[in-house]
Simulated assay, not measured.
Amino acid sequence: MPAAPARTRTTTSRRQFLTLLGISAAAVSCGTATASGGGGGGGGAQLKKLKYQGSVGAVSLPELAADLGYLGDVTLDWVGNTISGPQDIQSAATGQTHFGGAFNGAVVKLAAGKAPIKAVVSYYGSDQYSYGGYYVLEDSPIRSARDLIGKKVGMNTLGAHYQALLDIYLSRNGLSKADAAKVEALVIPPVNTEQALRQKQIEVAVLSGVLRDKALAAGGIRPLFTDYELLGAFSAGTYVMTQRFIKENPDTVRTFVTGVAKAIEWSRTTPREEVIARMTAIVKKRGRNEDTTTLQYWHSYGVAETGGRIGDKEFQLWLDWLGERGEIKKGQLKAADLYTNEFNGYGKGA
């Protein structure tokens, strides 16, 4: 039996989340200097080896693009595995890696902290095949947003994608800020979330991917809502790079972004069994002693737009959400200033 989930208050966890993203200008300046690769924008040699963080037992779009040969002379240098999206983009902003990916709300927070970053391509989202659901026990009395008042909702991290969607669900279903504050979001490791729900340590469990599919196969749970039902198909996260790195290495950035865009479309148009076989081979040959079982449950990356192109809507929703929460000043940032499609050679509607 796992330990009971920590009952950390949302305010405390939000403070920890903001601390994670609270990067000083000096740290960013120092970090980007080490990762810049030297004056490519001025005609010098551009950096061709990109440091990045991966995920255990998973294949990211850049990894897939590299294996498919879409990155040309650009190579990837794995430096370890990320613990979260906010940590991954913090590493990119401070120069420990050359790119990182996170929920777009986390990207907004980082930009609001004056980190000189730019989103370059979407890499995950929700669609009819890939989505996150908020599940309750089959016999649970919870049937509506109002039924969540005073209840505990377990999710992988606070201040990010799943807490944002919970807040939007509560707001759209008429809960006041005071009532919404009574819904307690808790951090629970994804592998323990289903068990915590079944043992009634929490009333709602956020499940996605293989963990969702396994839980549904076991029976006894039902969805309260899903992010796909709430917002439709949408791209939820982007890869970011520092503005300095982009300026000094434009050809490398173009190769990287276009390669990721091609990998998105390859995964979308290739039979699922073939995609899974390719991913399994990638994980096995990198030799990190990883379990490939979860890859069998892969359905899609969930990216909504062709080639991962980014639009204002990918950021405006989270700008509004963070503004309402008082975590950024309303009007402080414009969606269009947070991203660029300049380096995405896949093209609109290609």
Rank of each mutant, 00 (worst) to 15 (best):
M1R: 11
P5M: 10
P5N: 13
A6M: 12
R9K: 11
T11H: 05
T11V: 07
T11L: 11
S13N: 07
R14S: 01
L18E: 13
T19R: 11
L20R: 14
S24Y: 09
S24G: 13
A25D: 12
A26T: 06
V28H: 07
A33W: 08
A35T: 04
G40R: 09
G41T: 09
Q46H: 06
Q53E: 14
V56Q: 14
P62V: 10
A65R: 15
D67W: 07
G69T: 08
L71Y: 08
G80H: 04
I83L: 13
S84H: 02
G85V: 05
G85N: 04
Q90S: 14
A93Q: 09
A102S: 15
G105F: 09
A106F: 04
K109F: 02
A115F: 12
A119I: 06
S122Y: 00
Y124S: 03
Y131C: 02
G132H: 05
Y135A: 02
L137N: 13
S140G: 04
I149G: 06
G150Q: 08
M155R: 09
L158V: 15
A164L: 07
A164H: 15
D167N: 13
Y169D: 03
L170Q: 01
L170M: 14
S176Y: 12
K177D: 15
D179L: 05
V183E: 06
A185R: 01
V191K: 08
N192A: 15
N192H: 14
T193N: 11
T193A: 12
A196S: 14
Q199F: 07
Q199C: 01
K200P: 04
I202E: 02
R212D: 01
A218V: 05
L224Y: 01
D227H: 00
Y228F: 15
Y228G: 00
L231I: 03
S235I: 11
A236E: 10
Y239S: 08
T242F: 09
T242H: 10
V253P: 14
V253E: 12
V253F: 14
V253W: 12
T255W: 01
T255N: 00
V257C: 15
G259I: 12
G259M: 07
A261L: 06
K262H: 13
S267F: 04
R268G: 04
V275G: 05
R278V: 03
V283M: 10
E290L: 02
D291K: 11
T294K: 03
T294F: 04
L295M: 04
Q296L: 10
Y297Q: 07
S300N: 08
A304K: 14
E305H: 12
E305F: 02
T306S: 07
L317G: 01
D320I: 03
W321K: 08
E324F: 04
E324A: 15
L333D: 07
D337Q: 05
T340G: 00
N344S: 06
N344H: 01
A350L: 08
